[in-house]
């Protein structure tokens, strides 16, 4: 019985990983791709590791450490990547409505130069 539950949890996690790949392909610009890739792959990874923990209760502590590690580091690398993308002026999607960070930087640059 626990095998069936574990494999179903792994399947759901694999589905989230799959949709992370689809999101990476379909989204229009860098920032939305970062969002799709980060969120869906984090939850998918945690679900796969949880399913393995249901299979092998003896492994669950180490799997918990890996899951916690991914939970901490994946958002961090997404912040770093999005900041780098914004600071080297990667083009955003055409439907973008507002860019407060660019406005703020321009305002402070104008104040510094005048």
């Amino acid at each position: 019985m626990s095998e069936l539950i574990g494999s179903i949890v792994i399947l759901v996690g694999a589905f989230f990983l799959f949709s992370a790949g689809v999101g990476l392909l379909r989204m229009p610009d860098v920032f939305t791709r970062i969002q799709a890739g980060t969120k869906a792959s984090t939850l998918g990874n945690i679900l796969v590791l949880a399913g393995l923990g249901i299979y092998h209760p003896g492994w669950s502590l180490k799997l918990l450490i890996i899951a916690y590690f991914v939970l901490m580091t994946n958002p961090l690398s997404s912040h770093a990547l999005s900041r780098a993308a914004h600071s080297i002026r990667t083009p955003m999607a055409r439907t973008t409505v507002v860019d407060a960070l660019r406005d703020e930087n321009d305002a402070s640059a104008a104040k510094g130069s005048s």
């Binding site: 990983l17 990476l24 890739g37 990874n45 991914v70 994946n74």
Partner: peptide, 17 residues
């Protein structure tokens, strides 16, 4: 370039699983 790095980031998480 950032697109490629994002792809590598996602691939590494998938590879961990």
């Amino acid at each position: 370039t950032i697109d490629r790095v994002v792809a590598i980031d996602m691939l590494s998480v998938v590879t961990i699983s």
